[in-house]
Nucleic acid binder design. Sequence first.
DNA 1: AAAGTATTTGACACGACGTCAAGAACATGA
DNA 2: TCATGTTCTTGACGTCGTGTCAAATACTTT
Lengths: 199, 199
Amino acid sequence: MRPREFDHDEVLRVAFDQFWRKGVRGTSLSDIARDAAVQRGSLYNAFGSKEALFLQAYERYAGDYLAALQKALGVGSLRKRLTAFFDLTITNFRSGTPPRGCPTTRGLMELGAAEGEGLDENARQAFASLISRIIALVQDALAAGAARGEFDGNPAAAALHIVTMTRGLAVLERAFGDEPQLRKIAAHTIDLVLGRKGG
Amino acid sequence: MRPREFDHDEVLRVAFDQFWRKGVRGTSLSDIARDAAVQRGSLYNAFGSKEALFLQAYERYAGDYLAALQKALGVGSLRKRLTAFFDLTITNFRSGTPPRGCPTTRGLMELGAAEGEGLDENARQAFASLISRIIALVQDALAAGAARGEFDGNPAAAALHIVTMTRGLAVLERAFGDEPQLRKIAAHTIDLVLGRKGG
DNA sequence: AAAGTATTTGACACGACGTCAAGAACATGA
DNA sequence: TCATGTTCTTGACGTCGTGTCAAATACTTT
């Protein structure tokens, strides 16, 4: 068989960079083809469709991001862990120039509420899966903290609350672009969940 | 001059319905023209562009929605007010079949991070403006509640927290479509802000 | 009734997604 | 070494989206 003339992973990187900056709907395969120095038709041959290409690129991102979160949530006191968690989250939203926002949140809100779109459903599951895993990670950290007496409450409910807040932060980031505000909200949330003072 | 052959407000209603269901990028002016029984060119003549049409339709929605929130936030104890606020918010996300989600959150995440897009900036301001007004409304309710001894905390910080949560709920709604879950998170948030027991 | 003005209408240019057939490049077997 | 077959690449095509334009149209005003 004839070998690929392009680097599969390189294309995924270039594609996700564009998707992250401009959204799935706002990115054309021509854009990706140009930046990756690949013929547009080759992308269709290799990936099948824009959504399929996005899905592959997103899975790679999701894996990396989840690993980073897990690391952040594994060191120090519960308060330190949650602080590192929010830090990483906000830093992720604010990365790039101009800041690119949260690809998961953006992707979720880009989904069509239309009926027949099967690829949309795959994407929805990918987004939902990452969020579910993040909730599980936070819940584990809270449960461990509770066992150590650093937290008094329902880990499941608190984890859901915290991760819902991070989604809200992603939205406010787009609305106001005010990073100090985001960090204040995050700090306030940690105070609220752990009980203002100690932790 | 020649009079319009279509009802300006009717077009706005039809257009916003489509924008709400399918997003701005996912809605074509042909769709709107068909549903409104108006020639596509007439829409361009009357509104100038899709984004401009969206902006007009959105302003109408924002006004109505804000008025409803204000009403919900004006009756009963602080706990009742916040409950009504979250109720209305979630009911709004879940309205339609299938549920349409939150148009503001969706619109915000649809924005291009691109450079030159001026209409995007107008839309961003419209979204941000509605969110700011909602924050102000919630903050007023909290301040009034504090004056009555129903709340002990920083109204500004708590209002920001609460509204950030509603944005997060809008995202989770798209991810999981689980309305009971949304209502649980909302109840938990009220408990957290008011202090689990009384209020 | 005539003139003027805004609206309507259809054609056009451009770009995006996705498909297809033909050409090109390589591995394998003789 | 050469023929064969399979995959990748390339360019053309169809369809649909946005936005523009000129010509036709319908009303108001003088």
